[in-house]
């Protein structure tokens, strides 16, 4: 099952396409990271997926083919936006009460226990909680709905390192508990390697890279060798070249088993290095075969 699937998805504001010809399929059971420069269309894509925005072109479905924004889709999705959506004048208890009444499913016991564990007083107004506590309250409200897909837009951008760690720990523990899928957008590349096992790289409104992190890392190698030969190296698709006067680093799509040219050294790459290389080369792409149209069977990931 794909938790988010789009085909030819596009969104135009005025004359500007913020998302264009976006086709992707995010399989269930992953913590998927949506990465890209500012203005790449990350927030737009997430807003389309949760049904806050209607597409200009193409289609988006969630949780195995449910149209985005339909009641069935909304039932299974929880979304926490960039600005920690809370009513600042409501107490934590009122936030729980409100959410419980606006949703078909709400685990009041879980929510209260969780806030207790976090030491967040139920009678305090949301606006008077610390930034980290507000984030945790918004997350608790989202998780208490027991979603099958949790969508987070830049969830940790405003948090200090400890609050960030605790926030992600809560998200990941919930994913470990009941197999909830997570899609999150983030700028914090260094943390992604620990958190995400699926990567989608958006650039200029298009999908540039998509795939399981493990597969992406296994299919890329950094070759280091004499700069003079860097341009001749064309056996494998080259993603990015960094060239000094004498030495060059070439990121290529190759596996451990591919031959290394004489005089060159091959190293594995990390997720951050890989992502940066693709961000610098908006023309390069690494996309999986399927996910073109909805009638092709998506390659189910067995693990």
């Amino acid at each position: 099952m794909n938790v988010i699937e789009t085909s030819g998805l596009g969104k135009r504001y005025g004359s500007t396409w913020v998302l264009h010809e976006c086709t992707l399929a995010i399989p269930a059971g992953h913590v998927a990271a949506l990465v890209g420069p500012n203005g790449a269309g990350k927030t737009t894509l997430l807003n389309l997926a949760v049904g806050l925005v209607d597409p200009t072109a193409g289609a988006v479905t969630v949780l195995g083919g449910k149209p985005a924004g339909s009641p069935a889709a909304l039932d299974g999705i929880a979304f926490v936006g960039q600005d920690m959506p809370l009513y600042k004048n409501l107490t934590a208890a009122d936030m729980l009460h409100l959410t419980a009444n606006l949703n078909r499913r709400f685990d009041q016991h879980f929510a209260e226990a969780r806030l207790g564990e976090l030491g967040i007083p139920l009678n305090r107004k949301a606006g008077r909680l610390s930034g980290g506590q507000q984030a945790q309250l918004a997350l608790t409200v989202a998780l208490a709905r027991r979603p099958r897909l949790l969508v987070l837009d830049e969830p940790v951008a405003m948090l200090d390192p400890l609050a960030r760690h605790d926030f992600m720990a809560t998200v990941l523990a919930a994913a470990a508990d009941d197999g909830m899928s997570v899609v999150l957008s983030s700028h914090v590349l260094a943390e992604l390697e620990r958190v995400a096992d699926y990567l989608i790289l958006l650039s200029r409104g298009r999908v540039q890279v998509a795939g399981e992190v493990e597969d992406l890392l296994a299919s890329h190698r950094m070759l280091t060798g004499p700069a003079a030969e860097a341009s001749q190296y064309a056996e494998r698709p080259v993603v990015h070249v960094r060239r000094g006067a004498a030495q060059a680093h070439v990121l290529v799509r190759a596996t451990v088993d591919d031959p290394v040219p004489p005089g060159w050294e091959a190293h594995p790459v990390g997720l951050e290095e890989l992502t940066l290389a693709y961000l610098r080369e908006p023309g390069a792409g690494a996309l999986p075969g399927p996910a073109r149209s909805r009638d092709t069977q998506p390659s189910e990931v067995t693990r």
Binding site: D166, A176, R194, D197
Partner: peptide, 16 residues
């Protein structure tokens, strides 16, 4: 336990 490792290190469950 897998869940405890995930919760204490904030890492992906599949990694554990």
């Amino acid at each position: 336990k897998v869940r405890d490792v995930v919760a204490s290190l904030a890492i992906n469950p599949n990694t554990v």
